[in-house]
Design a protein around this nucleic acid. Sequence first.
DNA 1: ATGGTTGCAACGCAA
Length: 256
Amino acid sequence: MLKMATWNVNSLRVRLPQVLEWLATERPDVLAIQETKLPDADFPLADIETAGYRAIYSGQKTYNGVATLMRAEPREVERDLPGLEDPQRRIVGATIGDLRVLNVYVPNGESVGSAKYQYKLEWIEQLRSYLVEQLAIHPRLIVLGDFNVAPEDRDVHDPKAWEGQVLFSGPERAAFRGLLATGLSDAFRLVNQNAGEFSWWDYRMNAFRRNLGLRIDHILVSAETARTVRTCRIERAWRQRERPSDHAPVVAEFEQ
DNA sequence: ATGGTTGCAACGCAA
């Protein structure tokens, strides 16, 4: 079984001990991390390598930043979204074995109608055209990360209250469906049809304790890869820990 | 009810 995961860690500096413990416990083949919030010069490569992993990363000071940790040697590494001049570090891609793996941190969007919301929609559209190109080259494609979009009512604790709000607005959900329309499937929904399974809970208002969450972290797989998905789960327990990220890891297992 | 919490970095900004 090949095991791949995504986790928005909200500062790799703060969460490094949890990431190392998580790697030791789960032993995944690939872990995609978002919101590292540190420049490449400060990336804790030695700790990652001691844990038995290689790493590729694209970071910046204070905000954003992505890293992919893996056992195998990465090839054809890319750190930019083609066609978008963007100082924000939000994507890192690599070929790992016979899989093409894209790790993404989609913009949050702040609020509907804001400049950041517009940037979010443009970023997703740019990602969509890139996926069309990538799928033509790599039939075994996996796109995983923090998409900052809850696709459906069952991915939101209170869809009526969230209707029209950022992370769940119509245009964001339509943009997300556009990503799927390139030929990708949501790995979680291939194996789990439950409502009320979330990957992110706000730090405020005791949202986790009350399970006021959204499912916004996803593992999208091409048709050829979808056939091999065996499990996909959200590891809520890591959101319950002392000093947690506001996101839980999402893990998928594939038959080799 | 426009709140509240966390991380970064220095105080407001982003999420």
